[in-house]
Write a protein that binds this DNA or RNA. Structure first.
Lengths: 139, 139
DNA sequence: CGCAGATTTTAGAATGATTCTAACATAGCT
DNA sequence: AGCTATGTTAGAATCATTCTAAAATCTGCG
């Protein structure tokens, strides 16, 4: 018998199943936090804290595991703007980022607002997996 | 009486002095490695190893110190492509990067080869300090 | 339902990059 | 040479992240 899923986790459960991931208590909570309130940027630490504030019982290691699993199945995108910690973005459509160097805040820039007009060919034997544009901000 | 500077360090000494940095044995060696052979991309670890191979006696902490000082005075630029370690680039002119995700190799793309046509305005109270374009490569 | 086997979670240790500390050494001026 | 600010260093400390091995949980099946 499948276990009972609280109504507020229905959507998250659907997303996890569609991605081929088991619906564990921890993953449901994290998915709910990540995917039920518009696009978000989180770090492992920030997500862990947020989950803890909501009363979730899970370990930091699980947050790392889930962030990587979600990324692997295409539910998240990793964003590298700071040598030191990884950010994860729930916005999967092509877009770019403002990065506030002082605060560490990350903000989406819709794709239409930046035009990368010409791209060089990828070097022999390689292919371009992704184009990242980061506008670094100071105040 | 100023100390004697070996001829091969003359150029490096000039650059350090021009930047307002004292010419210590360690800085001379690092500057020589960094600035005497065209543009380079290094990490603290790679630079430390290279200096050690050349017989330099210095500590890793000094490499970190120097990389940051050189960056602060505008002799280097920090490049963030990997959450985990910082790269430093001796190429100070505007340009972008190919990043081989598999090997960690970084390669310059001349500015002329990429055109970032339109930029959004910086958000209220902030200004755009830098535009980074990274083409991530897989093989 | 109730179990077996596979997958997950977890605490804690381990790792890797980087920074800090506070003692020692040196550069640059007089 | 001698003074003093600056630079270097070993080693400890910190931070983000990954690993490990054991305990917990999930899912399919009888």
């Amino acid at each position: 018998m499948g276990k009972v899923i609280e109504p507020r986790f229905e959507a998250a459960a659907g997303q996890l199943r569609a991605a081929g991931l088991r619906t564990t208590r921890q993953r449901l909570m994290l998915a709910e936090i990540l995917f039920s309130q518009g696009h978000r940027h989180v770090t492992a630490e920030s997500l862990f804290t947020e989950a803890a504030e909501r009363g979730a019982r899970l370990s930091l290691a699980t947050v790392y595991n889930c962030l990587h699993q979600f990324t692997a199945v295409g539910l998240l995108r990793m964003v590298t703007v700071d040598a030191g910690r990884a950010y994860f973005d729930t916005n999967l459509s092509p877009h770019h980022h403002f990065y506030y160097e002082r605060s560490g805040e990350l903000r989406d820039i819709p794709e239409a607002e930046i035009a990368v007009a010409r791209l060089p060919a990828a070097p022999e034997g390689a292919k371009i997996a992704r184009v990242d544009v980061i506008l670094r901000l100071q105040d």
